[in-house]
Amino acid sequence: MNEWELPEGLPPGRLAGSLWVSRECLPDVYTRWRSFLGDPALEPLLLRGFQPPATVRQNINVPPEWLKRNLGRPWHSGELEEPTDPSLIDQVDPATLLKRWWRQKFGRQGWRGLAPAEPAGPDPAQFAAQIESTSLLKGDDAFLGLVPAPNSAAALALSGWISRRGQIHEDAALLRSWQQRFGVRLCALRIDTLTLSVAWPPRSLETARLLAAEHLAYNDNVARDHLDDYAAELIDAPTWDFWWD
């Protein structure tokens, strides 16, 4: 799906496959993003540009022209894939996928299966809209993105974002499982980062431990040596962040 009817009143932007992205970072991007959260046919995204980690910026004199040139990555730099058919999501069983990823890292020991679903609570779109913008933007500028999709999993598949873990329909299948069990919503993307809001986070440490193992199977940068500590952080957490080096 490379052509679709754009909403009126958008700032200047461009289509990259099925993803519409604003031409510039927007000072009111959070307000604009929030205004689309209730649209049943569109998924809005906060698209952050590439920046080196804060520790690097503090210790190395990064030229301003380098930062400006890289701010548009990957949204304006041709570093996106062709949209993936969301129907491929149905071919992936998240439990089997995570078990395979876990065994690739740790062998046959330690995998206990998926965390049980939490009872449905607040509407995920309304919950995401109430999160403070700094929790999602982390102080970085952001472009506005729109994808013609009915949910976050389909939006991820169509976005052209390149998976750091496997194939993008596998990431999307996992995201859909978390949508169903924990009310997550895809909020923000960067070239190496994925941020989700979590409307129904785990309430118990036991559920959080199982979920922490899912996160570790998906992403190496969660604390493998202190998994119980990480699990405790997931209890009532309003957002999850995954990043790849």
Rank of each mutant, 00 (worst) to 15 (best):
Q180W: 00
S152H: 09
D192T: 13
P148K: 06
N151E: 14
S133R: 10
T195M: 15
E132V: 08
L156K: 00
W161K: 07
Q130H: 10
C187G: 04
A157H: 03
W178R: 02
L158T: 09
S159I: 04
A173L: 00
W200D: 12
S135V: 03
S152L: 08
L144Y: 10
S133G: 11
A120T: 13
H169E: 15
S135E: 14
A188T: 10
A157S: 12
E118N: 14
G145C: 00
P124A: 00
A125G: 09
L146E: 05
P150E: 08
A173C: 04
P122H: 02
D140H: 14
G113Y: 01
V198T: 11
A155G: 09
A199T: 09
D171N: 11
A117V: 07
V184P: 07
D141C: 09
W200K: 05
L189V: 13
W161T: 04
D123V: 10
V198G: 04
A117E: 11
S197V: 11
S197Y: 13
P124N: 02
G145T: 05
A128S: 12
I131W: 02
F127G: 00
E170H: 15
N151K: 12
R112Y: 03
P201Y: 12
Q179S: 06
S163H: 12
G166K: 10
I162F: 10
L144N: 06
T195F: 14
E170R: 10
A154F: 02
R181M: 01
T195R: 15
P122W: 00
G183E: 06
L189G: 11
D123L: 12
W178K: 01
V147L: 12
Q180R: 06
R190E: 15
R176A: 01
I162K: 15
W200I: 03
A149P: 11
A155T: 03
L194R: 10
S159V: 07
A129T: 01
A120W: 11
L174I: 15
R190L: 05
Q179G: 03
D192E: 14
A153S: 05
D123N: 14
N151M: 08
V198N: 06
L136Y: 09
R176V: 03
D141H: 10
L146D: 04
G121D: 08
D141A: 15
P116K: 00
A115M: 02
G183C: 07
S135D: 11
S152Y: 04
W200E: 07
E132F: 10
A149I: 11
P124F: 07
A120L: 13
A157E: 09
G139V: 07
A115N: 05
D192P: 04
L144P: 03
A115T: 01
I168T: 15
G160C: 08
L196C: 08
P116E: 02
A155P: 08
F127E: 02
G121I: 06
A173D: 02
A173E: 02
S152T: 08
F127W: 02
I191F: 14
D171M: 00
A157V: 07
E132Y: 09
A115G: 05
W200Q: 09
Q179K: 00
G145V: 01
R164S: 15
A173T: 00
A173R: 02
L146Y: 03
G139I: 07
T134A: 12
L146F: 06
